[in-house]
């Protein structure tokens, strides 16, 4: 008896000791940081700033990192990562900036180069970074068009008109995005509509860059029509969801009444049992 108790305790202590020796909980680290971030993050001054700025950007939110724009090889830990042979582009000169961003933002580049701003490139005119920044690029909104920034070079007048034309539509786009997100959250298949809306928003935003008031106004009307179609679909779905709730209310109500009736029936039996 005593022997088996001692044996049991010995085994238990061994097991516990072995357990304590084991490492702490395993982490599910999914991040494999690229070499650009790993090196530059710890650097002081202007070499390290871009990382902090980039982290809050919309590019970072969507998995676009240093090499996506600057080229190079983020898998190499040595200076070779920044070798031109590995596609490294370095910092673009001012006149190359539209091409730099336009590798992905194709439509915007097209409209910009045709615009008054594009024609003034290299002669004191603005390029992408002027309004959008370079590392802390945020989701584009009409707030980028404002008196302080635009009057750096000229009068605000026409800029204000463009902003007026687009603000309401941009707001509607935002509202629809929110509604679609709520529907997505409810299990509705919103991928197609979200795609349509995204495409619409992109074509809407690229046309700002032409800085032509009349063109912006005309396109805005067209975008509004397409938005209306999506809005209509969303409203139909919301109506369906409401009808479901009404049906649900009826079902729950019937069940509660059924339960109460059964309980009252039980009580009639209970009275007889007593």
């Amino acid at each position: 008896m005593i022997n088996s108790l001692l044996l049991f305790r010995t085994v238990l202590s061994t097991v516990v000791m072995a357990a304590v020796l084991f490492s702490p909980p395993s982490a599910l680290a999914q991040e494999t940081e690229n070499s650009c971030l790993q090196c530059h993050e710890s650097q002081p001054g202007r070499l390290g700033e871009p990382v902090t700025l980039w982290r809050t950007s919309i590019h970072a939110d969507n998995g676009i990192a240093c090499h996506s724009c600057h080229g190079g090889d983020p898998a190499l830990m040595s200076m070779e990562a920044m070798d031109p042979d590995r596609g490294f582009l370095g910092v673009p000169v001012e006149t190359d900036i539209p091409d730099f961003c336009g590798r992905c933002h194709v439509g915007v580049r097209e409209d910009y180069l045709k615009s008054a701003h594009g024609r003034a490139l290299g002669k004191g005119g603005p390029q992408c970074v002027t309004c959008h920044g370079n590392h802390r690029v945020m989701k584009a909104s009409p707030a980028l068009i404002n008196p302080q920034d635009c009057s750096r070079c000229h009068e605000y007048g026409r800029a204000g008109e463009i902003k007026g034309a687009v603000e309401e539509t941009d707001r509607l786009i935002g509202v629809l995005e929110g509604d679609l997100a709520a529907l997505h959250r409810a299990g509705i298949a919103t991928r197609e509509m979200e795609g349509e809306l995204f495409s619409l928003r992109n074509s809407f935003h690229r046309l700002f860059h032409s800085v032509e008031v009349e063109r912006v106004r005309a396109e805005t009307a067209r975008v509004r029509d397409d938005l209306e179609k999506i809005r209509h679909k969303v409203e139909q779905i919301q109506q369906t969801l409401f009808v479901r709730k009404v049906g649900g209310g009826i079902v729950v109500g019937l069940l509660v009444v059924a339960g109460l009736l059964a309980a009252f029936i039980r009580r009639t039996y209970h009275e007889e049992e007593a």
């Binding site: 009826i250 079902v251 019937l254 069940l255 009444v257 059924a258 009736l261 059964a262 009252f264 029936i265 009639t268 039996y269 009275e271 007889e272």
Partner: peptide, 23 residues
């Protein structure tokens, strides 16, 4: 009496039950 109450309650319950079955 309990049995009379029970009779009417059961009719009601059967009605609700039929509605729920249809639903």
């Amino acid at each position: 009496s309990p049995s009379r109450r029970r009779f009417f309650l059961s009719i009601l319950l059967a009605g609700i039950g039929a509605m729920l079955a249809a639903v």
